[in-house]
């Protein structure tokens, strides 16, 4: 089984409480990491290989090193100044060009949302443009003959869906405990597998084929006027009394 996984490096600057935040400028988008972990499990079980792609600038190379350290067979950094700030339709165009440059895939995987831009369109657009079936909101998946079977969760139901390969699968963070697959900084630094670099010329993409139709005007932290009052207590009886007071005061 040949699996392609698209990974988005996310800037650490918008996120507090990140492990090793000082060491990295980017981290692997969580749902994409879920997709990668699942892809690695699938090829360990069914055989095959996992190729990772990332449309990003060179500063994000550590994210691809992490993917290799996790077990991906190869990694491609798709980078070119003309790929900066593209809208999703154009980013999908770049992704499709990269898929077409590679050997045929059975499964192309994406995370369902990017934790920074909170956008989740790439997988569906890539599937649509390539004329492939897609299954999104996937929480479990397995292989049956030449079919991929997925458990998909939507608001009020769980669906078991199947599609013949090649197929695009868009996964959620519920797919596996991705947070357990952390690689130590030192291990990532030790990765010496080559990372391929593909640019617009290599992919045969011209600037006029790409668009930047959506511009970000501002990003502001939502200010919270919270008291942040710590409840001090001597014993749990006292604490429960104080919590009860809050219940009564705030819930009226």
């Amino acid at each position: 089984m040949r699996i392609a996984v698209f990974i988005k490096p996310v800037q650490t600057s918008y996120f507090d409480n990140l492990r090793n935040k000082e060491k990295y400028e980017f981290f692997m988008n969580y749902p994409d990491k879920c997709a990668l972990v699942e892809a690695i499990k699938l090829v360990r079980y069914y055989g095959g290989e996992v190729n990772v792609f990332s449309i990003a600038n060179e500063k994000a190379i550590d994210v691809l090193k992490e993917a290799l350290a996790l077990g991906a067979n190869s990694a491609v950094l798709i980078s070119d100044p003309i790929f900066e700030d593209l809208d999703t339709l154009s980013k999908a165009k770049v992704a499709i060009a990269a898929i077409r440059k590679s050997k045929a895939y059975d499964v192309i995987m994406f995370g369902d949302v990017s934790v920074d831009s909170m956008n989740g369109q790439m997988g569906i657009i890539v599937a649509d443009k390539l004329g492939l079936p897609h299954i999104s909101n996937v929480v479990r998946l397995w292989n049956e003959d030449s079919k991929i079977v997925c458990e998909k969760r939507v608001e009020d139901k769980i669906l078991i869906c199947e599609a013949r390969v090649p197929v695009v699968v868009v996964v959620t963070i519920d797919l596996n405990p991705f947070e357990l697959y952390n690689i130590a900084y030192e291990e990532i630094e030790k990765v010496n597998k080559p990372i391929l670099k593909w640019d617009a010329k290599f992919l045969g993409i011209k600037p006029e084929e790409l668009s930047k139709k959506i511009k970000i005007s501002s990003i502001n932290k939502i200010e919270q006027q919270r008291e942040r009052k710590i409840i001090y207590f001597n014993d749990y009886n006292e604490l429960s009394e104080k919590i009860l007071e809050i219940f009564e005061k705030s819930a009226k």
């Binding site: 918008y14 934790v115 831009s117 909170m118 139709k213 970000i216 005007s217 990003i219 502001n220």
Partner: peptide, 19 residues
């Protein structure tokens, strides 16, 4: 079109401009 959306989990808010 001026559009506001959550950003970075909703702890931030982003404003976008498009046609």
């Amino acid at each position: 079109l001026i559009v506001k959306r959550d950003f970075a989990g909703g702890v931030y808010e982003a404003t976008y401009e498009t046609d």
